[in-house]
Design a protein around this nucleic acid. Structure first.
Lengths: 243, 243
DNA sequence: AAATTCATACTTCCATACTAGTGTTCCGAC
DNA sequence: GTCGGAACACTAGTATGGAAGTATGAATTT
């Protein structure tokens, strides 16, 4: 379930549809709406005090990001976390961000890199104060800053959509007291390498950073089996398993 | 302008909204709706004989693909071809497809690679018969087959959306009697390198293939200036140009 | 003549009504 | 008890009505 009617930043000029998207995405990523849970345009609209129309548009957007599954004439449900889907998203993200990092090295955009540096400074401060929500945002902002430094803001938009798949895993990892210090260290290593003009090193550091999720992923899947899609069994039918 | 009410494959079970998307995308890519042209939900709905609702959803999807621009309360228009946007899309596409090709080399999925080979065989035949529309599709199918061979069908979906930006340029290039034989040769070189297990070569061939558009792009922009977004001038105001 | 105001004709956005398809459940026949 | 079936309670998909905002142009004033 998810409450929320007018909390959050309720900018009156922002279109309702966009607000609903932000709302639902956040509720899904933080798992206030649990994986597998059923939604419906009608029900969601009533709960949020809006009409079905903007809710429907939000569902479509979330479906494109792979967070919900719309079954025509049947219903809409929050998809369970899929190890395969996370891996696929990670693959795409790694491909794009590697190219971004190399481009950032080539461009040497001092101002843009300073912005990224500033994000890491704030990250260090947020670690001290323990502001988990803010750390989430700062992680995102760092990667966005890299894309900006590469002169490819569009690339970040693509990564952002893929990242939605990984965000719930990140969230689980965070509740598990993830060592944000390690993430910061990796970010620093990437930025240092870029500023040093070492594309090879920057790419290696980035790959290492993005592959962190691969070690935590199976652990988390084992720990919260109800949140994850059951992996495709070797036997065709999951009920009857003959060896 | 664009006619079309029930031509195309008119599958009655397919949702109207999806059909409208396909329809409009095709009309835009083939420039039966010209870059810069104004659209409206009302007008388009009437022309297609459907209600505004599915048309609106189609507009939103096309806006996400960067083909149209929705100005709230003002109108919707087909965006002009932007050299910068095409270049950005190409960058993202190159990043993803390079990773795909390397993965395809790693996996050595014989069956999937045979499918890709089959696509190229048919391409050769289509060149003889001069079926331009089919060549368009086959180009797409080859790249999709590579993604399948890499076990990353999701990656193709992302590339597909980016490719929309490049499709109008491809279309112009085709009317300009593009040597499809060259494209086929490049495709063959890529596939040969993959089958030979040479990742480095496969990636080089792919990059060369995807960079072809960079040579034709400025020529086309100069040739059809009305179809292209005016490049950002060095001077702030485009009207007053002082040298 | 030039500038400003105001009515009008658009636009997208949101709300609501209706259609068609799906799953469930309860009732009855066997 | 088991199976079949029809009525019902949902769902998303589509159509349409109304509201808020914007550009346009004519009429009026300066």
């Amino acid at each position: 379930m998810f409450t929320l009617d007018s909390s959050e930043t309720t900018n009156p000029s922002e279109p309702i549809a966009r607000r609903v998207v932000r709302l639902l995405r956040h509720a899904i990523v933080t798992m206030r709406i649990r994986p597998g849970e059923k939604l419906s345009e009608q029900e969601t609209a009533k709960r949020l005090g809006v009409s079905r129309q903007p809710v429907r548009e939000a569902f479509i957007k979330l479906a494109e990001a792979g967070l919900v599954l719309i079954l025509p004439q049947r219903g809409t449900l929050v998809v369970k976390i899929s190890v395969a889907a996370v891996e696929n998203a990670r693959f795409i993200r790694e491909a794009i961000e590697c190219a971004v990092v190399r481009e950032a090295v080539r461009r040497k955009d001092r101002d843009a890199l300073d912005v990224a540096r500033g994000v890491l400074d704030e990250t260090a401060r947020a670690i001290v104060t323990g502001d988990a929500e803010r750390l989430f945002e700062l992680d995102e902002e760092f990667h966005r800053a890299l894309a900006a430094a590469a002169g490819r803001p569009d690339a970040w938009r693509v990564v952002e959509e893929q990242k939605a798949q990984m965000d719930r895993v990140r969230y689980l990892d965070m509740t598990d007291a993830i060592p944000m210090r390690i993430v910061l260290a990796q970010h620093l290593a990437i930025l240092d390498a870029i500023e040093a003009g070492d594309a090879e090193l920057a790419e290696r550091e980035l790959r290492a950073h993005l592959r962190e999720i691969l070690v935590s992923l199976p652990k988390l899947a084992a720990r919260w089996p109800t949140l994850f899609e059951a992996p495709a069994a070797a036997a065709p039918t999951p009920t009857a398993g003959d060896a």
